[in-house]
Design a protein around this nucleic acid. Structure first.
Lengths: 341, 341
DNA sequence: AGTGGTCGCTAAACTGATTTAGCAGAGCAT
DNA sequence: ATGCTCTGCTAAATCAGTTTAGCGACCACT
C-alpha cells in the first residue's frame, strides 16, 4: 500500500529549501517570512512529486490523526444505523476527517476492546452512538478527549444529539386533529418499560408526552391505548385486532412506530377495512416500509442522517453540552383522511 | 484523548533495561537471547504502567497500521450494508484490526477523496464493497496493497466474495418442485438490464440461471415471466395484478426479491386470494419484512454477515483469486404449500 | 563604528516506536 | 596467553513529519 511516496524531504530538496520551509509553506503557517517565490517553488515541487504527507509521522508529532471513532452498541440490527453513519461520514469528509467504526454489541469485553483500539490510534474524538434513543453511561476512558453522544444522553454533561420525539408526538396528534379526528383516536404501542426506564428508551415517553400534551390542549382524550410487549408487526397486528373487537371502532390509529403500523395494516386488511376511508393510520420512524405499504403510511421521520451529521459538527466545531434536538419531519401520506361520519 | 500514556522508554527504565530489550520482549521476538528474568521484568513493568504502544510511532517504522479500509459505493441505502459491515467488524476484531469506513456514493470525486484518505493513513488492506452484486473496476491507486472485493467481482484477478445466487435459484426452484408445483409456476422480476449488464447486477442473471437449470432438469417450464423496471414493491404489485388477470392462475410465484414479493402479497390480498392455500410465494434476499409478512415469506437469505467476515479472512489470511461463493440458505416459511388442485 | 531590528531561511531536536550493528564478558580450546 | 564462540544486552539509526531556536545578511539609526 503506497510505497514510493515522496516525502517532505524530497519536496524540500526539489524546491531547493529546507524541510522546515517546505513544512511551513505546505501547512500555510501564518507569520512565517518565507518569500512568495519560496512558496511557489514548494507548491510546484509538491505538485510535481504528487506529495502527500505521511499521517503517521505527522500524528506522532502533533497528536492529531484527523480520525474520529464512531462507537456504537449495534450497527447492524437496525436499518437506521446506515443513515446515522452516512450522515457522519459526509460531515467528516467535509472536514477532512475519516471514521473509524467499532461496535460493542452491548458487550463489556467488546467495549473494552473497542476503547483500547481507538485510544491506541489516538483518534481526535469519539461519537458514542446508541441505536435506540436512550440514556447511557460513557466509559471513563474516553472522557480524556472530545465525546459526542448520538441518539443518546448521559448524566456526564456531554453534548448529545437526539431526535425530537416529543415534537413528533405533537405533529402526529396535530395532524389528526386538523383532519377532524377527535373522540375516536386510539393509540397502539404503550410500553411500560420503554416509557419508564430512560436506559431503555427515551423515545417512547417523549412521543407519548407530545401526543398527550397536544390532545389535552384540544380537550380530546384517547379512545383506547394498547400496550404491546414489543414494537414489532405481530404486536401491532394483535393490538389492532383487539381494538376492532370492541364496540366503538376508532376513526384513527396512532402507532408508536412503523412496524406496529405494518401489523395494524395486516389486521385491518383481514377485517376488510380500508385505510384511510374507514380508519386513518399515522406513525413514527419513517421506516422504508412506510412508503411501500398500500396505502402509503403517514409517519414522522427519524432524521438519522441529519443526526449523524450534527454529531460530527458538534464534535469538531465545538458544541454546547445540552442535548441537541433534531426535528422529525412529518411525512404526509395516503393513510390519512378525515373521519367517516 | 489519552495523554500521559506510558512510553516504551518508561517501561524500559522501570525494568532496568534498554528500549531495545523492552521492545523485543513485548513483541515476543524469537531468537532473542534475553533472559527469562528480563522477560519477567519487562512484562511486570508494562503491566504496572498500563503500557500500550503508540501505534502512530509503530506504523511510522513498520508501515503497518492494523487498520483496514472498507470502501463501499453506498453504505446507507441498502438495509443489508449493516450486516456486511458487522461481519467485517467482527472478523477484524478477532484479528486485532480495526475498520476505517468510507463511502464513494458512486461519485468519482468522493472516490478520489476516499482513496487518498486511506492511502495517507497507510491502511494494511482494502475491502472494496458494492451494495448490489456486480462487476466493477477497481481504482489503480489501491492496487499497491491487498484488496478484496466484496459483493463484487472485477477483471483484475482480485479475490472476491459474492453470494451464491445461482445456488439460491436452484434452492428456490427445487423447493417448489418438491411441493409438487410443476406447470403453473410464474416468475416476477425479469429485468433486461440487470440480467445482461454485469456492471449493474450479477445476481439477476445467476438467480435466473439457477431457476431455469433446475426446472429444465425436471422438464418443467415457467407459466409466465413478468418483466419489472425495478425490484420495488409497486412493481411486484403491478406484475401480480397482471398475472391474476390472465386465464390460468399460477400455483406458485417466484419473486426475484422480497420487495417484489411484498408487492405481490398486496395484490393477492386485494384479489381476495390466500397465501399459500391459493398461491405459494417464494423469493430472494431475506429482507426483514419477509419474516414480518403474514404469512411469513419463504426466501433465500443473502448471507451478508458471512460475506463481510469472509472478506476480512481473505484479506488477512490470504486468499485465492477466484470468487468465493457464500451459500444463500433457504428460509422455509409459511408462504409455501402444495398446489391446490 | 557600533547597535538593533527585520528579513528569509535552516539546523537540530523531537515525537515513540523498531531494527541494525555491535559490545562486554564468560567459557572453552589451543 | 590468545583466539574463538556464545550469551545477554545496548547505542544509535531510522521512519517522516513538526517545531524551536537561531544564524547571517542587510538596513537604519545614533
Amino acid at each position: 500500500m503506497g510505497r514510493n511516496r515522496a516525502t517532505l524531504a524530497d519536496v524540500a530538496r526539489k524546491a531547493g529549501l529546507s524541510k522546515t520551509a517546505a513544512s511551513m509553506v505546505l501547512n500555510g503557517r501564518e507569520g512565517t517570512r518565507l518569500s512568495a517565490e519560496a512558496h511557489q517553488r514548494v507548491f510546484a515541487a509538491a505538485e510535481e512529486l504528487g506529495y502527500r504527507p505521511n499521517l503517521a509521522a505527522r500524528s506522532l508529532r502533533t497528536r492529531k490523526t484527523a480520525t474520529i471513532a464512531f462507537v456504537s452498541d449495534i450497527v447492524a440490527t437496525t436499518r437506521f444505523a446506515g443513515d446515522l453513519i452516512r450522515g457522519a461520514l459526509d460531515a467528516a469528509r467535509e472536514r477532512d476527517h475519516v471514521l473509524l467504526i467499532t461496535e460493542t454489541q452491548g458487550d463489556a469485553t467488546f467495549e473494552q476492546y473497542a476503547i483500547e483500539a481507538i485510544l491506541d490510534r489516538q483518534v481526535d474524538g469519539v461519537i458514542y452512538a446508541a441505536m435506540a434513543t436512550r440514556r447511557l453511561t460513557v466509559p471513563a476512558a474516553i472522557l480524556g478527549g472530545p465525546v459526542v453522544l448520538l441518539n443518546a444522553t448521559s448524566s456526564d454533561g456531554l453534548p448529545s444529539v437526539v431526535p425530537d420525539d416529543e415534537g413528533a408526538g405533537r405533529s402526529v396528534a396535530t395532524a389528526l386533529l386538523e383532519l377532524g379526528h377527535r373522540d375516536a383516536i386510539a393509540l397502539i404501542g404503550r410500553h411500560r418499560l420503554k416509557e419508564d426506564d430512560p436506559e431503555v428508551s427515551l423515545a417512547a415517553r417523549a412521543r407519548l408526552h407530545g401526543i398527550r400534551q397536544t390532545l389535552d390542549e384540544a380537550e380530546v382524550s384517547l379512545l383506547a391505548e394498547c400496550f404491546c410487549t414489543e414494537w414489532l408487526p405481530e404486536h401491532g397486528y394483535a393490538a389492532m385486532r383487539g381494538l376492532l373487537s370492541k364496540p366503538t371502532r376508532p376513526s384513527a390509529i396512532i402507532c408508536m412506530n412503523d412496524r406496529l403500523a405494518f401489523g395494524a395494516y395486516q389486521a385491518l386488511g383481514e377485517a376488510g377495512l380500508t385505510v384511510p376511508e374507514d380508519i386513518s393510520v399515522i406513525s413514527f420512524d419513517d421506516d422504508p416500509i412506510a412508503a411501500w405499504l398500500r396505502p402509503s403510511l403517514a409517519t414522522t421521520a427519524l432524521p438519522h442522517e441529519q443526526m449523524g451529521r450534527r454529531a460530527i459538527e458538534l464534535l469538531l466545531d465545538g458544541g454546547v453540552a445540552e442535548p441537541s434536538l433534531v426535528p422529525m419531519p412529518l411525512r404526509r401520506r395516503r393513510s390519512l383522511a378525515p373521519p367517516a361520519d
